[in-house]
Amino acid sequence: MSARVPNAAEPIGNIQMATAMIVFEIGSTPMFLLARDAGQNAWISMAVGAAAGTLVILVLLHLQRVSGDQDWTEMLLSRLGKWGGGALAVLYALIFAYESMRNVRDFGAMANGTILPQTPIWIVMLIVAAIACYAVAKGMNVVFRTIELFFPTVALSYSTVALFFFISDLPHAHRLRPVLDQGIGQVLKHALPELISFPFGQVVVFLLFWKHAKEPRRAMKVSLTAYGIVSLFLTAMSALTLSIIGADVAKIVSYPFLEAVQLIHIADFLERLDIFVTLVIFLGLFVKLSMFYLASNVIVSRLTGLSPRTCAIAIGLLIFGASFLEPSHTFHIWLGLKVQPKYAWIYQVAIPFLILVLTLFAKRKASRPS
Results as ranks from 00 to 15, higher is better:
Phe331Trp: 06
Ser290Tyr: 11
Arg364Val: 06
Val230Phe: 01
His332Val: 04
Phe164Ala: 12
Trp122Ile: 09
Ala109Gly: 10
Asn7Trp: 05
Ile351Leu: 15
Phe320Met: 04
Asp274Gln: 13
Ser231Ile: 00
Val142Glu: 12
Lys221Ala: 11
Val124Gln: 06
Leu63Met: 07
Ile131Pro: 02
His212Gln: 07
Ala267Asp: 13
Ala129Cys: 14
Leu180Gln: 08
Gln186Lys: 14
Gly139Arg: 02
Ser238Arg: 00
Thr54Gly: 10
Leu270Ile: 15
Asn41Met: 05
Val339Ile: 15
Ser254Trp: 01
Ile12Asn: 09
His265Trp: 05
Tyr347Phe: 12
Ile121His: 03
Pro193Trp: 05
Gln186Gly: 10
Glu259His: 14
Trp83Glu: 04
Pro6Ile: 07
Leu163Ile: 14
Met110Thr: 09
Ile299Trp: 07
Asp181Gln: 12
Ile115Lys: 02
Ala38Pro: 02
Leu240Thr: 08
Ala87Met: 13
Ser223Glu: 00
Val142Arg: 06
Ala135Phe: 14
Cys133His: 06
Arg145Lys: 12
Phe150Leu: 07
Pro152His: 04
Gly201Tyr: 02
Gly139Pro: 03
Ala247Tyr: 04
Leu224Gly: 11
Val280Phe: 03
Thr54His: 02
Ser28Lys: 07
Leu176His: 09
Gln118Met: 12
Thr114Ala: 01
Gln348Glu: 15
Ala129Tyr: 00
Ala111Met: 14
Phe164Asn: 04
Leu180Cys: 05
Asn103Met: 13
Arg368Glu: 15
Asp71Gln: 09
Ser367Asn: 13
Glu25Pro: 00
Gln182Pro: 02
Ser301Lys: 01
Met220Gln: 15
Ala344Asp: 11
Ala236Trp: 00
Phe209Gln: 08
Asp69Ser: 11
Arg309Tyr: 10
Arg364Gln: 11
Gly81Met: 09
Arg175Cys: 00
Ala260Met: 07
Ala247Cys: 03
Tyr158Phe: 15
Ile319Met: 11
Leu279Ser: 14
Phe200Val: 07
